[in-house]
Design a protein around this nucleic acid. Structure first.
Lengths: 175, 175
DNA sequence: ACCTGAACACCGTTCAAGT
DNA sequence: ACCTGAACACCGTTCAAGT
């Protein structure tokens, strides 16, 4: 049912995700959905969560900068796969298992980098908002006029900037 | 009419902005709105634009870093004033007068800083996505569990990171 | 447990008609 | 020019009823 909703959103946009359209796709009446979902908001929460769970977690054996870069790329890919829904990610509290999963990857990487615990949580939030902001902007259409190469270069600049910020914090705390 | 729509969104959320509710607030029938607006999407575009135009432009006599910081603060304030609508800003192409207005402030500041023209446009996009991403996350509710002090500190870290990136680019190009 | 039919109050939008 | 009444096809959701 979440899969059907997500597919519908990808094909026809978020506005096409109605209880009746989802039910149709499942060969059932709209009212049957209320057995599995509290209401429409709950259904959309489920769709958002399933996108979050789609982001592949990087291999723990990789070096921490590679893990962060891979997670960022994975997030961006998920956004481009689901442009109609992705902007919703910024409108839900980051307290679900899918959100926690990604956050833990970043926490572990930043700890391994050597950041102090308070900087770990600060930098996780910095990374998450910057990457999600970029991905949501790109998927949402704010960059409509830009070429793929431009966007790739922009994403690289963002990643470099964030990496430099982490290295800067490390240098500052080892003084 | 845009003012009435925005007010409605602020008071009761974006979902409450229906043609009928807006018309009610204006003491008119829903159909009368179609005289002034093509359809509902057009109305929402107008609301988004009016938020963009609400962001105060910094005084040109200020130094460039202060102008950038002031614009960022003004954007964040607008988001907090209109949390229900702000996430929509990431879903509209940045081609309206309101978007251009803010972009020109950043262009001028970055040129004055001494960046090369290609870096000017790259860094403007970096700044815009990072600041809008933060503001949309905060307004949208992704940070629901965090305190105001935490969020202020996070915003400061973001601004510092972006400022450092600009200074880094300046240093690199003057080698 | 799971699904349905009928119903409710509400959507966005059109069209012809009114002033 | 601007607004309205009536109508259309669609929403989300509830409830009692069916298997």
């Amino acid at each position: 049912m979440l899969a059907a909703s997500l597919q519908l959103a990808d094909e026809e946009g978020l506005a096409a995700v109605t209880m009746q359209a989802v039910a149709d796709r499942l060969g059932v009446t709209p009212m049957a959905l209320y057995r599995h979902v509290k209401n429409k908001a709950d259904l959309l929460d489920g769709v958002v969560e399933s996108i979050l769970l789609e982001v592949p977690l990087p291999d723990v054996t990789e070096a921490w900068p590679d893990r962060l870069a891979a997670l960022a790329r994975g997030t961006r890919s998920a956004a481009l796969r689901h442009p109609g829904v992705f902007p919703l990610l910024l409108q839900r509290a980051a307290v679900t298992p899918g959100a926690r999963r990604a956050r833990d990857v970043v926490y572990d990487a930043l700890r391994e980098a050597g950041l102090r615990e308070d900087d770990v949580v600060r930098f996780e939030r910095l990374l998450a908002t910057a990457i999600l902001g970029f991905a949501a902007s790109e998927a949402g259409g704010r960059f409509a006029a830009h070429s793929a190469e431009q966007l790739n270069a922009d994403f690289a600049l963002l990643q470099d900037t964030l990496a430099a910020a982490i290295l800067g914090a490390l240098a500052a705390q080892s003084v």
